[in-house]
Nucleic acid binder design. Structure first.
Length: 527
DNA sequence: GTGTAAATAT
DNA sequence: CATATTTACA
């Protein structure tokens, strides 16, 4: 709910500021077609039989820089949308008590265009009928100027709701525009957050933003009720992610939604569709080939920027699988696993679960349940991880790595040394043991223009991969850090500093990792 | 299948 | 150029 308000405020702000520009499509620096000074030039089909009110509405809309085509009967309107469906972004139809059949028909016919019903009718069933027939909103007359002004919201919603495939030509630019704007906005937000880091409450900034908006806060119920967004995903992703910086989402996605892995290749940034990728040498990586991406029409840039983790698409997120870049697909190049902090965290969790001595690649892969992640990938990562451990942990642990290598012992025997009850991934309940986490400091500055290979860049000198405790909600009463999206909380600079305040960043640049925590002890932050 | 060292890619 | 990741091999 709140995030929705924030989001819309952001839109309004950007668009409001650019109102002096001519309506035009233009290629942005990112290569996206953007609609300059949206929503100016948005094409509205107005169907209103009542001439005087129609003209009034039309002129109001035109004052707001909308382009209005007025129709006085539904036949013409229907003909218009059937002939030139692409030439309207949104429709406003009037429903009267006397004759509403036509309008209903219009609603039925014009599914592709977000349609707002305006009416004198106060009958609930009529309203419901309209909504049920697909109306984006039912507005009682007289329609306030704010409502009219914010008509664009329905277009944006439609643009994101329609899904990449059926996205009409008229909606596509809208979507790209929004994507582009959100990118810019997010950059701005990052700066703002830094500036306001000292100011305790984030909401303050949002409200302030809204006040200054040329376009007022969202008036449409649809947009105010964030929950009403369909599960199509993109919009939710954006809202979720853009806000995630400020408001952690404890347990929102709990164990039911598992993580996916970002698998990237070259410089390209895009969505997965990896069906035809065959790693030249590693034929054993069959898992890779099972990946079939979808929704190639998705706005990849927004994902790159707004998906904090390695999700390239909602689909991937839902299916818990690796997603690969276009480059991987097109160039048939070898892919690298993007060991995002999140993925690594999962890895570590499984390793801990198995017990460090029994953590062998095959079992880790099995337990991680990440589609597309191969044993090789894990083995490699494990090697690194072990090196890390070896380096960090004195000798005690090191011996254990070596000593417990007996292959016959490799079962799911929990390590007694951990002194914590074993748990299984399928129960989704983390124990109160801590998970070492290699933290990539620049992880949150996804370089869009940079090589798609890594989305974070290691700091120049050292690897300040640290550990941080992921605590059980029961243990700490602080479920924030338990979620699989454990890195979200860390996204906030504030949170991060809180979490890391205890962890030294000592300047030993030779240290690949900094193990600040004894793995065998639960440290209580309250002491 | 594993663990490590060497090769490679970024 | 460093090093994370992949690849080769025992």
């Amino acid at each position: 709910m709140w995030r929705m308000v924030v989001l819309c405020a952001s839109f309004s702000k950007i668009w409001g500021l650019r109102n002096d520009v001519k309506p035009a499509m233009a290629g942005s620096a990112d290569g996206f077609v953007v609609w300059k000074d949206f929503p100016r030039g948005l094409k509205i089909l107005l169907l209103d039989k009542d001439a005087p009110s129609a003209v009034e509405t039309k002129s109001k809309l035109e004052e707001m820089d909308y382009v209005v085509s007025l129709y006085h009967n539904e036949e013409d309107a229907l003909e218009a949308i059937s002939k030139e469906a692409e030439s309207f972004h949104v429709a406003i139809v009037e429903v009267t008590t006397s004759d509403n059949c036509g309008s209903f028909r219009f609603l039925e016919m014009a599914k592709d265009i977000p349609t707002i019903v305006i009416s004198d009718v106060h009958c609930l069933s009529t309203m419901m009928k309209c909504i049920a027939l697909g109306a984006a909103e039912f507005l009682q007359k007289p329609v306030s100027e704010d409502k009219l002004r914010n008509i664009w919201q329905h277009v944006v919603q439609k643009a994101f709701n329609a899904g990449g495939n059926e996205l009409s030509k008229s909606l596509k630019p809208i979507k790209d525009t929004v994507v582009s704007m959100l990118q810019k906005q997010s950059e701005t937000d990052e700066h703002k957050i830094k500036e306001k880091e000292s100011e305790k409450d984030d909401k303050y900034g949002c409200e302030k933003t809204m006040e200054n908006d040329r376009f007022s806060a969202p008036s449409t119920p649809q947009l105010e009720q964030g929950g009403r967004f369909p599960t199509n995903g993109e919009f939710q992703e954006i809202t979720h992610c853009s806000i995630a910086k400020e408001l952690p989402q404890p347990g929102k996605h709990s164990s039911s939604v598992s993580k996916s892995v970002g698998n990237t290749c070259d410089n390209s940034v895009s969505i997965a569709n990896n069906k035809d990728v065959l790693p030249s040498k590693a034929e054993a990586e069959e898992e890779v080939n099972s990946i079939d991406g979808s929704k190639t029409d998705e706005c990849s840039a927004v994902k790159e920027r707004f998906l904090p983790s390695h999700f390239h698409s909602v689909d991937d997120l839902q299916k818990n699988r690796l997603s690969y870049s276009d480059g991987a697909r097109n160039n048939r190049k070898k892919m690298k696993v993007d060991w995002t902090p999140e993925l690594h965290r999962q890895f570590v969790q499984v390793v801990e679960q198995l017990g460090i001595d029994q953590a062998i690649p095959s079992k880790i892969v099995e337990l991680m349940k990440v589609e597309g992640l191969t044993r090789h990938n894990v083995a490699s990562h494990l090697q690194k991880y072990r090196m890390h451990r070896r380096h960090v942990l004195p000798k005690d642990e090191d011996r254990r790595w070596q000593a417990d290598k007996d292959p016959t012992q490799r079962g799911y025997i929990p390590r007694p040394i951990l002194a914590y009850p074993p748990y299984h991934t399928d129960c989704g309940a983390p124990t109160n043991q801590i998970y070492p986490f290699w933290v990539h400091p620049n992880y949150h500055t996804h370089g869009v223009g940079q090589a798609g290979y890594t989305r974070w860049h290691p700091p120049p000198q050292s690897w300040p991969w640290k550990t941080y405790p992921v605590v059980h909600a029961d243990a700490w009463g602080c479920p924030v850090f338990v979620t699989q999206y454990g890195q979200y909380p860390m996204s906030s600079p504030l949170q991060r500093s809180l979490m890391y305040s205890d962890f030294d960043t000592s300047g030993d640049s030779n240290e690949m990792f900094q193990e600040s925590y004894d793995l065998h002890q639960v440290k209580t932050p309250h002491h």
